[in-house]
Design a protein around this nucleic acid. Structure first.
Lengths: 344, 344
DNA sequence: GACAGTTGTGCAACCGCTTGCATTAATTGT
DNA sequence: ACAATTAATGCAAGCGGTTGCACAACTGTC
């Protein structure tokens, strides 16, 4: 059915190995022969079969990208960036969605292992042990998680959470709620750790509510808990939850930001379009996608060093945060916007 | 490096063909042998190499899924549905994003062709001719486009546009703007065709504005044009544009729905979260994803019939539409919600 | 006890392509 | 003029599997 290297060889009167070399090592074949072969290939519509090539070379020119939930608006920009970066290096991205399920994650990595040169594991829910084990079967780069010995790209959410909590305490909030994310999320643990420490330093009380599914429903359904806890400000695990929470607070009769301030994390597109516009910690998602691909492709050349790349986050102040009941600090550190960028 | 069928054969003392059959035709091998082989395979951590298998069987158990823009919230639910449906049949989905670029579309299909059993082309921007040509290289199912001879799943946006325009004319709108979508979009043409006819029947004037990029920016940037045209109601190509438009109208000083009514198409998650909540034409995205996969997998068995599956749409009335200046019709057909579902 | 079926396994070719080595022709040096 | 390079191509093995065919060892039948 499909036109193979043999058809081209027959048409151009050379051996199949010459055709092969025309494509994979052009400098080894005579320019005349080469152009003849190329002409035949063109005319027959020949396209090399990457899978067959991979069988021998071990290079598939494919990259696996695994996310917990494509429908979470956090991921698409990352995927797009990874894809365009991969395309620059003539690689393709295979995206898989795991429905926030650690078991599916493992299964998908294994299924992909032989068809890709490496896998990007974004915000994985698996255990460290399992990730380490899988990394022996296929090159891995994890995003938003730090594991010794595994190359990683992480967004510095700890810093982001600190900025967010400082912003709140500086504006007089003393009773803050933290909506944590899904169980198994490294990011959620980081946020919690940093937020707790920052709240303590700012003499504010922090109530942790969760774990919660990282969706708008997850935020919506804890609105009551937030009010019950008497919090005047909330930091949510992500924007989706923050937006859901605002909706929930609204139906419960609380206004944002007059009664409760809300901060999200991620700065998804949506956050600029809701009313009130969401104050949030912007994470450099696209940069992370590009960096992860670069790291994976570089990994082959130089596998002795496993780098961890930290990307800065920044606080974007919009309309969902307002003053709290306590005294304001004169110099509000929350208003200092730290530019996003790349750090070691 | 990786453990192959040969390693398993050596460990269990049988020929490689027996190992092969243990996995691909278990009934042909003696139960005792089989369990011994399976035990060895298990113990060595053997996983069949799908790419190698594909070389000979021609079946990859992979499906390509091509979308114009993953970041458009319309697509993720479709992708998720396709993926879970595919997984049920032990297939994997490879997602590719084309950045709304017809040339990239072609390139990606060609690159994927040999690694997949078929490709799902969602809202393609290519020409019919090119799609027909590609469909000779790899089994294709198109979503949101009708081409003779190519299996398709389409959402009945013509019906949706009709319901939307009827809703508007019934509530007294006589000057309606239509924000069309990107050039090359079949959906956009369908909407335009249906909206034009329906407006004429309802004695309303329809101003077409566009083509526009199908993003919130696309909507935002034509707010002035809408006001200039004197329209009291707008039907947008999709929700994203509708939401952008509302934002643009708001900053231009026009209120929605008091001054201008806005209807979107798609019913993305976001539309429930903006204020005002968006009136929109709900499209059965998840159903389309599932159906497209089913159609592709069925295609192999029975390729003489190329079906076109039409999925119903429904009008969801929320808060972004209000009465217009003209007389209302007594029985408002827009209030009749047509249940979404599957039709031949 | 010879014959025809079953059943289980091995043999070897092959899928589309790459690549080390051998072969031949053309070019260079002395 | 002849050995030594160099350049271009062919040959064949092999990547990790599948599969038609052959072959043996059992069954059961009359």
């Amino acid at each position: 059915m499909s036109v193979t290297i043999r058809d081209v060889a027959r048409a151009s009167g050379v051996h199949i190995s010459t055709v092969s070399r025309t494509f994979s090592a052009p400098h080894l074949v005579n320019p005349n022969t080469r152009s003849r072969v190329l002409a035949c290939a063109e005319q027959l519509g020949y396209r090399p079969n990457r899978a067959a090539r991979a069988l021998i070379t071990g290079r598939t020119y494919n990259i696996g990208l695994i996310v917990a939930d494509i429908a979470n608006p956090f991921f698409p920009p990352l995927i797009k960036a990874a894809e365009s970066q991969a395309r620059k290096h003539d690689h393709h991205i295979f995206v898989a969605d795991t429905n926030e399920d650690a078991a599916v994650e493992e299964e998908v990595v294994r299924a992909l292992a032989k068809q890709v040169d490496g896998v990007l594991l974004c915000s994985p829910r698996m255990s460290n042990t399992l990730i380490e084990q899988l990394s022996r079967e296929v090159p891995l780069v994890v995003v938003n998680r730090q594991i010794t010995g595994i190359p990683a790209v992480v967004m510095d959410v700890a810093q982001g959470a600190r900025l967010a909590i400082e912003h709140l305490t500086a504006r007089g909030h003393r009773n803050i709620a933290l909506l944590s994310g899904p169980r198994g999320s490294w990011t959620s643990r980081e946020i919690r750790r940093s937020a707790t420490a920052t709240a303590r330093a700012g003499h504010a009380e922090l109530t942790v509510i969760g774990p919660n599914p990282p969706t708008e429903t997850g935020g919506l359904s804890v609105a009551e808990d937030v009010l019950q806890a008497g919090a005047t400000a909330v930091l949510a695990y992500n924007d989706l939850m923050a937006i859901g929470l605002i909706e929930g607070l609204f139906t419960a009769g609380a206004r944002v930001p007059e009664d409760v301030s809300v901060i999200g994390i991620d700065d998804i597109m949506l956050s600029r379009l809701t009313r009130p516009k969401l104050t949030t910690v912007a994470t450099p998602t696209a940069a992370a996608g590009r960096a992860a691909v670069d790291m994976l492709l570089a990994h082959g050349d130089d596998r002795r060093s496993t780098a961890h790349l930290h990307l800065q986050t920044e606080l974007v102040i919009r309309d969902s945060t307002g003053p709290g009941p306590g005294p304001h600090s004169p110099a509000d550190p929350g208003d200092v916007i730290v530019p996003g960028g790349v750090a070691s």
